[in-house]
Computed example of a mutant assay.
Amino acid sequence: MPRISKQDKARNRQNILEAASRMFRSQGIDAVGIAELMKEAGLTHGGFYNHFTSKNDLAAEVCSASYAASLGGLARTIEDGPGQGGSPLERVMADYLSTAHRDAPDGGCPSASLATDAGRHSEAVQSAYAGGVEGYLTAFAAEFLREAEEKGHELDPAEARHRAVRLLSEMVGALMLARAVRHVQPELSDEILRTTRSHTLD
């Protein structure tokens, strides 16, 4: 049987990661079996262990990679500065609490889609999740400090951190609630998103 090239192996591994990212976020880690996952990735069941030691190992890497992508988008929005749609944080919040983000649980930020799973899984998964949360808090706090300085206001770093914690908590909580009720009470789901968008940065 011919050996696969390093490029093919790397591509297969990436296919598994991408399939797992979609499936874990939309269905939950425990609900996804390895056979089902490998089929989604276009590979055979037995090939899984050529790339990962366990599903838990994969879950931790998916969490880290998902946050890396999400935080990269956040950094680009902040770097763009104020624009049509308001300040960077206003644009971040509008995008996060949009119906498009709500209706795509297999993509977007893992803070909401993997919150329950992270709390139930290994320290490796929880550490990857905590690292992503810290990434968001650090970026938010830095932006609060930058905005205050731009306006000529003094803002204590501890207060900036408190605002960051509150902002992330409200965004994630609102998205989770909106997703939980969107099929049975779409008007309530929209209201949760709309109200949080309107008042979170007040």
Rank of each mutant, 00 (worst) to 15 (best):
P105I: 03
S189K: 03
A41S: 05
H45G: 04
D190Q: 15
H162G: 07
K39I: 02
L188G: 04
E191F: 13
A104H: 15
S26T: 06
V92C: 06
S5M: 04
G135V: 03
E149H: 12
D117K: 08
Y96N: 03
L17N: 05
S122Y: 13
Q14W: 08
N15Y: 01
A164Q: 10
D30F: 04
A180I: 00
K39L: 11
A158R: 13
L97D: 02
H183Q: 14
A20S: 07
D103S: 11
A174E: 03
H121M: 06
L74A: 09
V184N: 12
G33Q: 11
I29N: 00
V172L: 13
G46R: 10
A164W: 11
R163E: 08
H101I: 05
I16A: 09
P2D: 02
R182E: 14
I16N: 11
E154G: 08
R146C: 01
V133E: 14
A94R: 13
D57N: 13
S21G: 14
P157E: 05
Y67D: 02
L89E: 07
Y96M: 05
E154T: 11
A124I: 01
A31C: 08
G47H: 11
G72N: 13
A68D: 10
Q185V: 07
I34R: 15
I78G: 01
R11H: 09
L155D: 08
R146L: 00
H183D: 15
A178R: 11
I192K: 04
E170M: 14
T195G: 01
S111T: 12
V184H: 14
S127D: 14
P88L: 01
E187C: 00
H121F: 13
